[in-house]
Design a protein around this nucleic acid. Structure first.
Lengths: 151, 151
DNA sequence: CTCGAAGTTTGAGTGCACTCGAAGTCAAGC
DNA sequence: GCTTGACTTCGAGTGCACTCAAACTTCGAG
């Protein structure tokens, strides 16, 4: 059973909009999409797999242009395996670098958040002191040492 | 010494272009930039710090709109500390989620790369076999088991 | 004094990845 | 037969974050 999918069904299965599916076909990311008697698109399971693969590449930050290059190579057959492999390796390196970059930025944000927490603790303490009319003038809470987070 | 910076100098110190610096001022991301007698921008060290901070936020994926909101809150003073803190916490959560997302995608790409390596090893082996005229018909290299990488 | 480099403002242009609109076609239900 | 709604193509529009162009001013070197 060669289950065929309408554009709506493929949209539902991928999460892409029909608009985007037509757009991907227009630019050549998907090719040779079958049509029924009335000229409507009939997608195959292979189309669905390919789309899902493309979506993952997209999620890694690969540009449409790069994906087009990959799609072109794939169409040329197994002689381009090494090149496609290199593309995936490059993309993997790219993603790993991005992870490292974001980890450093997470450290920066965590420090910033800690700074705010300290500031807020102090200002709450000050407010408290006012309410209590300097009742707890002895024993001020120590200013919590700054934890230089590097996650 | 209140070292002032020209737009070129600030551009050099931040890596942003003069165009972008003017743009940031136009939209209100930086405000009250001093001018010299001839109407040229004179940036302060505080401006530089603020720009560097903005750039980091930008690198975390924060939109210009969000940064404008943060800038507005900061201008309103310490009464908005809690809100700014919440923004930083939200952004930190965002970055951590992004890291997790990318780690999953790195796993996917690593699998893909492994798949290609296996395929290439086999095709090279086949090529080799041809060259050697089936000399090594006994003892075919085992098809290396697929390592389902989850990094 | 003149020249050229670098600055100013404002509005318009760019590139990416969609996203939509208009005008037309087609099949099914009433 | 007529309507409805989903489909088709194609070109145009959108949002984001810059990026540039044009016309003008200003400063410093020669």
């Amino acid at each position: 059973m060669d289950t065929q999918l309408s554009i709506q069904q493929l949209a539902a299965s991928t999460g892409l909009s029909p608009h985007t599916l037509r757009y991907y076909e227009r630019i050549g990311l998907i090719q040779n999409v079958a049509r029924d008697a009335g000229g409507r698109r009939r997608y195959t399971a292979a189309d669905l797999d390919w789309l899902r693969f493309l979506m993952r590449l997209r999620q890694t930050g690969m540009s449409i242009t790069e994906m087009l290059r990959y799609a072109g190579l794939r169409r040329e057959g197994s002689s381009t395996q090494a090149e496609r492999c290199a593309m995936m390796e490059a993309q993997l390196a790219h993603v790993r670098q991005e992870i490292a970059r974001l980890q450093a930025l997470a450290g920066f944000l965590a420090d910033k958040v800690d700074g705010y927490h300290d500031a807020l603790r102090i200002s709450m303490n000050a407010a408290n002191t006012e309410i209590k009319h300097a009742e707890s003038r002895r024993n001020p809470l120590p200013e919590r040492p700054r934890k230089t987070r590097r996650s």
